[in-house]
Nucleic acid binder design. Structure first.
Length: 725
DNA sequence: TCCATTGACGTTTTT
DNA sequence: CGTCAATGGA
């Protein structure tokens, strides 16, 4: 068979990976080195050359977008339908497994997915019900604790240090929360993975079935896998499954979320006969950008080692702009984008990247003023909007009235006089008898536990849901959606809001009906025995939709560095490159490789740029209302000076940082200060240190000093009694 | 039940 | 400074 179409457009290492006959392959794919191409070609190679059945391949990604792209490109290459292929996200595949084996997984057929917001609400409810102080035991933290444990594959009984009062309290919450979920048939995101893992552990016959069938596993973004995902993959691979793993340890930026870069090392250790291939030729960026990125990332200690190169031009140097303040920075960036547009380039070829979401605002304001269209990534997504979730909650109650999260959400939306008191009675009943809210509400009504009026309104609500379910049983999904919105009178709930707000809500509800109308039950969901309704609800949770779907037009792209991973733009701005902001203060303070992860984030940002990279920082920045004096990011210092070019020549970039330069900021606050940034100082108790930042003004001025022996401290300047040295 | 005022808090996010 | 949620009065 002629396989040239599979190999012609590959370079040597890519070809080596695609055609490898080793049991397992690890592809260390640098940024812009064609990793998706390798994955897709490997998949095609397996099917067309090794004659593997499409049914025998499982390809796993992290995002729906990546899964979609892989499926599409594979289809193009193969020239036939990719339907039989299992391509999906970890969560999507786990979900499918649980659907097909809900009995073995001990889940009701009607189980539904609890998204992050639902999860937090439920936890808040539980913490309150336990009579705990929400300030001391925030739901956010409980959520973090539980998800982190689940990501590690731990159930409450597996968690040690029960003698530790704080831990044992969280474990208690974990237990209560899991009880609630189990009763209501609710599965959170982490639970999907954990259950899928347990399904195989507890049912060897099920595992055996999938082991036999899925002999080839392809995994994308392997550096982002967490402990449970890796365990799940190992279990599935067993002794005979073949793994083809693609990842880049230098682009691991989700450690804080449970991702384990170490899995790359574990993989080489745990599997025999692993062929490691490095993809280092970069097809994206200019030589200068790559050289700077290489130099930066070389400062990380724990690396597999990799050096990007290109046979393209070295391009222009990286432009560094030292802005007076954040306003000036935004002004500058927008001005340069305007120049770019004036040269006839496209707006969507440019991106502004920043560390924190709050930074987007200034850029938005300036772009708006310049009438340049822009798009901000990472806002709220369609299926996450309040009104959409409200309407879906009614639908969820039709599917399964024991869905406590859904009931809590809409029981009094719109107001039907089921207030806090009435709900307290229902919750008490539920707690005492181990029932769901729906069941408890029924009990309370039949046992006449309510005052007269409360009894009437609660049974009216029960009847409303029951009658909707009965009446709409055979309706199409779109009609059900519309019916639920009409019958619940949900729209009336938004009437008190400002007109504009209300109008968009009503509009979104209309769009939701359209979405339901257009929804086609996927074959695999039908096979797994899902109803159209169940499938739709799952999709809403698993693929919350585009962030700002409508405007796919020619827009400047604004996003955090995290969401930029995987994307590329001819023109990239990295804004807010200041120590404390990037690397973020909280990452610098914490130990445990956090700084290295920040550095990788910087590396990711830089390698997004194809032609021109701008780096900017502000000398002073208003944060949380007060003025901050900033030091340029240490990451700038780590880039070779000869690859950088000052945009404002009169102020030098300090490299290494030896400034003693009183800030030339127009605010003029520096006159009040006896010390300057970067200055060496002596403290009677803490010894020698370096001035890192100032905050506040006048007698309230605080100074951030990094002491050689004692570490970084904030001191009130007036009392610190610092001496210059 | 609703609205307004007050208070705490302030990385990164997909599923 | 700006957001979100909780609180308390009408």
């Amino acid at each position: 068979m002629d396989v040239s179409h599979l190999l012609d457009e590959l370079n040597e290492p890519q070809r080596e990976a695609v055609t490898s006959s080793n049991s397992h392959v690890l592809v260390l794919a640098g940024a812009g080195s064609g990793k998706t191409r390798v994955l897709v070609h490997r998949l095609a190679w397996l099917i067309q050359v090794e004659h593997v059945s499409p049914l025998g391949v499982l390809a796993v990604t992290f995002t729906n977008k990546a899964a979609g792209e892989m499926r599409e490109r594979t289809g193009k290459l193969l020239g036939f339908s990719t339907r039989p292929l299992w391509v999906g996200t970890f969560h999507g595949i786990a979900h499918r497994l649980l659907r097909m084996h809900c009995q073995e997984a001990d889940l009701p057929e009607t189980f539904q997915i609890l998204d992050a917001e639902d999860q937090q609400r439920l936890l808040r409810r539980i913490i309150r019900d336990e009579g705990m102080n929400e300030a001391d035991w925030p739901a956010r933290q409980a959520q973090w604790f539980i998800n982190a444990r689940k990501d590690e594959g731990q159930r409450p009984q597996n968690i040690e240090h029960l003698d530790h009062p704080v831990t044992s309290t969280w474990v208690h919450i974990y237990k209560r929360y899991q009880d609630h979920c189990n009763r209501g048939g609710l599965v959170d995101f982490a639970e999907l993975l954990l259950r899928a893992h347990e399904l195989w552990l507890d049912h060897p016959d099920v595992l055996e079935h999938y082991r036999k069938r899925l002999q080839h596993l392809l995994i994308d973004e392997f550096q982002d896998t967490n402990a449970i995902q890796y365990a799940w993959l190992r279990l599935l691979a067993g002794d005979s499954g073949r793994m083809f793993v693609v990842g880049d340890d230098d682009q691991s930026i989700y450690g804080w979320r449970g991702a384990k870069v170490e899995n790359i090392q574990y993989f080489v250790r745990d599997f025999p006969d692993v062929r490691t291939v490095r993809l280092e030729q970069n097809y994206r960026s200019t030589g200068n950008i790559l050289d700077a990125a290489n130099a930066l990332i070389a400062n990380n200690q724990s690396r597999m080692g990799k050096k990007l190169w290109t046979d393209g031009p070295s391009g222009k140097p990286i432009q560094v702009y030292a802005a007076f303040n954040e306003q000036d920075e935004a002004r500058f960036v927008v001005e340069r984008i305007q120049q770019w547009l004036d040269q006839g380039r496209r707006a969507d070829g440019s991106a502004i990247l920043y560390r924190t979401t709050a930074q987007s605002r200034l850029f938005e304001e300036n772009l708006l003023q310049a009438s340049i269209p822009y798009r901000v990534y990472g806002g709220q997504r369609f299926f996450e909007r309040t009104e959409v979730k409200d309407a879906l909650a009614y639908l969820r109650l039709l599917n399964n009235p024991n869905d406590d999260a859904a009931l809590e959400r809409v029981v009094n939306k719109p107001a039907r006089a089921i207030g806090a008191k009435t709900l307290a009675i229902i919750r008490l009943q539920a707690r005492e008898s181990g029932l769901t809210l729906w069941q408890a509400a029924g009990e309370c009504v039949s046992q006449e536990k309510f005052a007269k009026r409360a009894g009437t309104v609660v049974s009216a609500f029960i009847q409303l849901i029951d009658s909707m379910r009965e009446r709409m049983q055979d309706w199409t999904l779109g009609k059900q959606m519309q019916g639920v919105i009409d019958d619940s009178a949900l729209a009336s709930h938004y009437e008190k809001e400002p007109r504009e707000r209300m109008e968009t809500r009503i509009e979104n509800l209309g769009e939701l009906v359209n979405a339901a109308d257009a929804f086609i039950l996927p074959v695999e969901d039908a096979e797994a025995g899902l109803t159209e309704l169940q499938s739709f609800l799952s999709h809403a949770a698993l693929e919350a939709g585009e962030t700002q779907g409508e405007s796919w037009e020619d827009c400047v792209q604004l996003m955090t560095l995290h969401s930029a991973k995987g994307l590329e733009f001819p023109l990239v701005f990295m804004a807010g490159m200041e120590d404390g902001l990037f690397p973020h203060r909280r990452s610098v303070d914490e130990s445990g490789g956090r700084l290295e992860e920040e550095r990788r984030l910087c590396y990711v940002g830089m390698t997004r740029a194809r032609e021109q990279l701008y780096i900017s920082y502000a000398e002073t920045r208003r944060m949380y209302g007060s003025q901050n004096y900033c030091r340029p990011s240490r990451f700038i210092d780590e880039m070779p000076a000869e690859l950088l070019e000052e945009v404002r020549p009169r102020i030098a970039v300090h490299r290494p940082y030896v400034p003693a330069r009183p800030s030339t900021s127009p605010v003029g606050l520096s006159q009040d200060l006896a010390f300057s940034l970067g200055q060496a100082v002596l403290h009677s108790k803490f010894g020698e240190g370096t001035v890192m930042a100032f905050e506040g003004a006048g007698e309230h001025t605080r100074v951030h000093v990094n002491f050689h022996d004692e570490g970084a401290k904030w001191l009130v300047l007036a009392y610190a009694n610092l001496q210059a040295c």
